[in-house]
Design a protein around this nucleic acid. Structure first.
Lengths: 420, 420
DNA sequence: CTATTAATTTCAGATTTCGAATTAAAGGGA
DNA sequence: TCCCTTTAATTCGAAATCTGAAATTAATAG
């Protein structure tokens, strides 16, 4: 009663109805929480939460954890005078969590010459994962579908997961995804266009299949990891084999389609991009472009299917650090291209947060000078001031991790609708 | 019962609650509707609609119109075998509308040297309007606030509107608006920056004051006028004194901040823009830029505060039609800049619809060649294919009209929360 | 004037939620 | 150790909202 300073905030009518969904959503985002806190966060009354959670526990969607040893509030100083993180007076709170045993999710990431698979429990924690390296551009549509289905089956077998435990499948793909249909329109990792991966997979397993651009998946993983980033509009620019972007609004991706910021043009007669057009940001900034351009004046091993490996890119960075002025210039150009990408993003989207992610950022120090100089010239100062830019050189695991998250969101919603 | 082919669609829990709001929202969007149709659109049962509407009528938010003379369904062929638009058998439907007498909204548009004011009823129909021409750049913050307040008062007096009838005020402004705070960060129409217009106005009238970028207002007006444009994501690019953009998702603006696509850069060393930076799209495409550049080689009257009048722009177009190759080249450059704006918008936002609007389009025929050529080179074909581009050379009244709409949306929501 | 048709309302029952009071499970102090 | 305080969670009756079925109303067709 004391810390309930805010007004009684009648949620009433407005929020009623999908209260079940709200409870699950809050637990999904905020992790283990006692009922009191659930009531506070959802705005529902204690009796309502009590009834809802007992039903959800009966359905095995939720379960109780051992009594909270420490205060459940974040490690910040929010819990004021109480001080010590040990037991407080009064009846101890019982933490509720999503029941990891409720079911499982499989996420597949398709990239150039690599298919990664992760199986996670209902809470989103990974159970097992696999990596399959193969020439993806050699696949036709049928072979690709079969391959994905085989990977999922292998994962189910390897973890002894019965079919009925599988709740949903998420497929993250480097390339252009149609948000409405789920079709893959184009991908640098594939030689085919206009593929429908979702439908065959859905038919094979009889569960929801969610498609998304890989940058969208990474954006979800990063925003979920830092609560501050999940507030408002955030744009995650992924720099790596290609340049992708995912937009997240209040922690939710709007559709699975990424933004094609990488194919915004900087100069009408700029360098050739693998998309077929010229002067794309990607053609200055993506690692394939840097490596290709470096090979015109340096003696470097050829890249496999025009895709330099991590080791090859590391070599490139090393040589640049060694002081080759031509390489330095290349990275400075990339820095300017990155600045233009950030500038266009800020101008068009007006996001609260811009997150720079991906392996391409390993070379950020070499781009920094040109990046900062160009950024100042390319964005209106008042816009730049109202946006925060973060550097998060993410792991490659962020793709499947984020994809699990996205799929769980869809699964949650479906489940709530189905059970009313 | 016959045309109710779709499944019974249990809205139940999910949609319950703000049903009052849903009813008002549907009537706001779809205009006069009978209760049957309201039930169908909202997914609520007849009894629920019956109860809700009778309460809303008692509160004077809604009112009944005379019985529908014609079938209320759209003029399409949806109403199948019934044929004639005359009376059908059975009890005639009673149309419900938002009660125009419920209250009034005032919208103010602030542009270069022009302040336009519109007062509208609760249904959104204009009651009266005024235009005030004055040198806006000569105003300081206090003078501007006073002026706006005076305009609103004058409008209330002129229409004999009692203060308690005023439900909300909307202010549309050419320039950069902070969506979170409502502050005007920068405007070409003003010599001052970082102004808070909303707070003084709110204090003066004691009602909600909504700020928005003028392009957002136009976007709302245009999408509201064509139901097809209100579906999915639409981006309205306004070409005129400046280049603005408003984004509308499912008929709702996300925040009042516009996108600053006009200040995306085309070339690092491009022409000077009035924002202080170089190479902005606006510096090739806005009418002030075209007029300024034309004056370097043509004998044209000087523009007032660097802002050519409608007549001066018409003169410019006439001369270009007359065959001056230098002018032609200028308009072709503008066409390319417009293509780049559309390209960046499509790449970053992946909208379903792109709407080109504003007085600048009067010269579109002269830009078309270069526009189309560049657009093909600047957007990935698969993205261009999944976007429709519309030309809507809008009236200037669209700004205040859209602003009324935006304000009504906010007022509706507030009212629903207040009444539960 | 009666049958038919379609829109709306009435009525009883189900579901959800809330406020107040109660029970449960701890720590603190004599 | 025993009781008091504190905090968490549940129980219970009342209120609100929604639905399905049936009744009512208001028009046209014959």
């Amino acid at each position: 009663m004391v810390d309930q300073a805010e007004p009684p905030r009648r949620v009433s009518t407005l929020a009623r109805g999908s209260s079940r969904g709200r409870v699950v959503e809050v637990l999904r985002r905020q992790g283990p929480l006692p009922r009191v806190e659930l009531a506070r966060t959802t705005g529902l009354s204690f009796p309502a939460i009590s009834g809802l959670t007992s039903r959800l526990i009966a359905e095995e969607l939720l379960c109780e954890t051992e009594t909270a040893a420490t205060s459940w509030s974040d490690d910040t100083d929010e819990e004021d005078a109480d001080g010590l993180n040990g037991r407080r007076r009064g009846r101890p709170a019982v933490l509720l969590t999503l029941n990891p045993e409720f079911g499982r999710i499989i996420a597949v990431s398709i990239r150039m010459n690599l298919i990664e698979t992760l199986i996670a429990d209902f809470r989103g924690s990974g159970v097992a994962q696999s990596r399959l390296a193969l020439p993806t551009r050699a696949l036709d549509a049928a072979a690709l579908c079969d391959l994905v289905i085989a990977q999922i089956n292998a994962m189910l077998d390897a973890t002894a997961t019965p079919r009925h435990q599988l709740l949903g499948i998420g497929i993250a793909l480097q390339g252009i995804v149609n948000a409405d249909t789920g079709w893959t329109l184009w991908s640098p990792a594939l030689s085919i266009t206009d593929v429908d991966l979702a439908t065959p997979t859905r038919q094979a397993f009889g569960v929801e299949v969610v498609m998304a651009n890989d940058a969208v998946a990474v954006a979800l993983a990063l925003t979920a990891a830092e609560p501050a980033l999940a507030q408002g509009l955030s744009a995650t620019i992924m720099v790596g084999h290609g340049i992708g972007m995912g937009v997240v609004v209040d922690g939710e991706a709007r559709g699975g389609a990424g933004s094609e910021i990488g194919h915004v043009k900087l100069a009408p007669d700029g360098p050739q991009c693998r998309c077929g057009q010229r002067g794309c940001i990607e053609a200055y900034l993506a690692d394939y472009a840097l490596y290709r351009d470096a090979r015109t004046f340096l003696d470097l091993p050829p890249a496999d299917s025009q895709q330099p490996s991590e080791a090859q890119m590391a070599l490139l960075r090393e040589r640049a650090l060694g002081g080759d002025p031509r390489l330095k210039h290349l990275f400075q150009q990339a820095g300017r291209a990155l600045a233009e990408a950030v500038a266009a993003t800020i101008s068009v989207l007006r996001p609260h947060h811009v997150i720079l992610a991906g392996p391409g950022l390993h070379a950020f120090d070499m781009m920094r000078g040109a990046y900062e100089e160009r950024l100042e010239q390319a964005v209106l100062p008042s816009l730049l001031k109202s946006t925060t830019i973060y550097l998060r050189p993410s792991e490659s695991a962020a793709i499947v991790d984020g994809m699990v998250r996205r799929t769980l969101g869809v699964v949650d919603r479906n489940h709530m609708e189905a059970t009313e």
